[in-house]
Each structure stands twice: as structure tokens, then as C-alpha cells.
Design a protein around this nucleic acid. Structure first.
Lengths: 108, 108
DNA sequence: GCGTGATATTGCAATATCACAATTTTATAA
DNA sequence: TTATAAAATTGTGATATTGCAATATCACGC
């Protein structure tokens, strides 16, 4: 079929999967690392640093934005991205809690 | 194109992405939860509990196996799956370290 | 051996994802 | 207003993923 049957899973399962899916591509891992290293980073810098075309980077940025991990600041012609640390922390906890709970369940 | 240009990213970025990708589907989240809750679980139980067809579950199990997260025990006709806790712990650390390092970079 | 039950594999259709060229939008600078 | 530069959007082709029916495989009991 090609599409995921999300309705048969609960909200939490879909949430963990959604967050993880965004991290499931090395370009997006690289983008997040570059933005956090440089604090502020525009699209062009990412294009040069990573070596994918501008529309491709823009697309990956949109995926990361969808889960709220990015902040934007307009400065002249440039659009600078930075990490939404609060949201990053939420993602970390959601994913890590899944691991921890799984580990605890195994040990009971 | 449709395929990921993995060669332009480093090993660590691909590793984080690989682990995350496996968690990037709610069926696989659900499978991991069910197996860890029941300690041992065969394919049929997962099929009944989740409501996807047997080949679909089998396929998702294969994805989870690829990153080493599952152990198998044959008992008669049944094949029981359990969680490889050591590997789960490694995955947890790899993914969580990514989050923590990102957070630290933002704060510097 | 033969049937049975459990799981993996194969083949296929539908959808999603990845990557990029071309274009559009937006905002500044001249 | 016009040029320019940055980034988003659109359109497209190639590949990957999701899901399932049909089939194959494998291990047991008879």
C-alpha cells in the first residue's frame, strides 16, 4: 500500500515514531548539528557545508520545522535558523523515555 | 532520485539516522513495547495484538533485527522474540548523546 | 512420509521519500 | 523601478517503504 496505518496505534506510539522519523535521515542529523554548532545558520551555509542542492536542504529543514525543532530570525535577505532548545529537550525526553520504559519492562 | 546519499555523511551521522529510522514507524514502536512487556513473544501474538497482517509484522521484525535489537529462541514450532537489552542500551545512548551534544553546543 | 502450524520470503500495488532543475517569492540594494 | 540574492515552492523522475495475498520453508506430531 505504501502509507502507514497510523490509526491503529495510540498517540504516544505515533509521537515517538514521528520524532524518530525526522532523525531518521543523516542530512537532518547533519543540519541539526551544524545549526547548533554555529548557533545561527542560514540555508546557504548548510547547502555549502553539506553538499546537497538548495531545494533538498530546504525540504529537510521543513521536516525538522514540522516537529518544532527550529526557530527562525530574518536579518536582511537572510533567514537564520537556530535550535528550539525547549522542544529539543521534549523530543529527547520522549525518545529516551521510550528506551528507558522498554528497558524497565524487560527487567521486571 | 529517491535514495539517500549516505556517502556524503560521516559514520556517526549515518548511525544515529539508522537507529532512529527503525524507531520511525509506530508498528515497530508497538512491537518493541509488546515484546518487552511480555518478555517473550512470537510473531502470531504480535499479529493478533497489533492488527497488521503476518507478512507485514514479519517485515517490521526484520527491520528491528537488522540493528540487532532482537534475540530469538526457538521452542518447538514457535519462534520467541525478546529484546537484546545490551543493544537497546547502546541505541539509547547513541540517540540520547546526539540530543545532549546538540543541547550543549547550543549553550556554548 | 504426511499434515499442521508458525514464520519467512516473494511479488505486487499504492504511497512516500529523496534529490534536483526550474520557478516563484521575498527582501534588500542600487 | 530594477537588479540581485536568499529561500520556498512546484514539478518530476528515481528509489524506498508500507501492506498484503500467495507461496515457501521449517519443525513438530501423527
Amino acid at each position: 500500500m505504501g502509507f502507514t496505518k497510523k490509526h491503529i496505534f495510540n498517540e504516544h506510539q505515533n509521537l515517538v515514531a514521528n520524532y524518530s522519523k525526522v532523525l531518521g535521515h543523516p542530512a537532518r542529523i547533519s543540519i541539526i548539528q551544524l545549526i547548533s554548532d554555529k548557533k545561527y545558520c542560514n540555508c546557504n551555509e548548510l547547502v555549502k557545508a553539506i553538499g546537497l542542492a538548495q531545494p533538498t536542504i530546504s525540504q529537510h529543514l521543513a521536516e525538522i520545522r514540522k516537529i518544532g525543532l527550529l526557530k527562525q530570525t530574518v536579518k536582511g535577505k537572510n533567514l537564520f535558523y537556530s535550535i528550539n532548545i525547549e522542544k529539543l529537550n521534549i523530543c529527547r525526553r520522549v525518545v529516551n523515555d521510550f528506551f528507558v520504559k522498554t528497558q524497565v519492562s524487560c527487567g521486571k
